[in-house]
């Protein structure tokens, strides 16, 4: 379970809210552009320094500004797929998926096994030797997801993962994400601005507005106050 309280002074407002994400569930973070969704994920991942924060992951404190605790990004074991899936274009798909495993000094034989397993799960085995720069948007998203999940993260964070995908790829990524979160019983935070996605994939939804939590609950029960977030 993730519990994150954070405060960060931004240019137009102060981001100040507490986010809880249960293990085995997908918590959807919603809000209009600039409401602080991606900033929150960056703070949880350790990519952005908060003014004050207390973040615990499965009971372990990964950041507490008052006590000077700040676990480095690379040691937080968070699988984070950013809005730009950022597959490394100069590497093959295989090397992309293996990147995190090698960074964590996984034995070579195990790397081969894990990479093969995750490429199979994401249906990208045929692309193993292809340079990632030559992939389509949907393929890149699958590679990014496989790469994040192969490291066996204790928290999964996906920032607008469906933006560049066609309907078929979107459904596929949704199914894979849901299955992984259930199977491995880890918390997952998914950022989207589409209510339909939230209702389909989310177990819980949180609505951010100007850095504050306006509402949280079951996605299908989202009240009218969220009409501002609905896609046309």
């Amino acid at each position: 379970m993730l519990e994150a309280s954070m405060v960060k002074r931004l240019r137009d407002y102060t981001l100040d809210f507490t986010l809880r994400a249960e293990s085995g569930q997908i918590t959807v973070l919603m809000g209009t552009n600039g409401s602080g969704k991606s900033t929150s994920l960056n703070i949880i991942a350790g990519l952005l320094q908060p003014d004050t924060a207390k973040i615990t992951l499965n009971g372990e404190c990964i950041c507490e500004t008052r006590e000077g605790i700040n676990i480095p990004v690379e040691d937080r074991r968070i699988g984070y797929v950013l809005q730009n899936p950022a597959v490394f274009p100069h590497m093959t798909v295989h090397d992309n998926v293996a990147f995190g495993l090698r960074a964590r000094r996984t034995p070579r034989a195990e790397v081969t096994g894990y990479v093969a397993e995750w490429m199979d799960r994401m249906h990208i085995t045929d692309l193993a030797g292809v340079k990632a720069g030559n992939l389509s948007g949907g393929q890149k998203q699958r590679v990014a997801l496989a790469r994040a999940l192969a490291t066996d993260p204790v928290l999964l964070m996906l920032d607008e993962p469906f933006t560049a995908l066609d309907a078929e790829s979107t459904q596929s990524v949704k199914d894979l994400t849901r299955q992984y979160v259930r199977d491995f019983n880890i918390p997952c935070i998914l950022v989207t601005h589409r209510v339909a996605d939230s209702e389909e994939i989310g177990d819980r939804a949180c609505v951010l507005c100007q850095g504050r939590m306006e509402w949280e609950g079951i996605p299908t029960e989202m009240p009218e106050l969220c009409t501002v977030c609905r896609c046309p």
Partner: peptide
């Protein structure tokens, strides 16, 4: 260079 590449590498455990 889009910072997303370096940020992703860091979250994957890369120093």
């Amino acid at each position: 260079l889009d910072p997303a590449y370096e940020q992703t590498a860091r979250t994957l455990g890369s120093s």
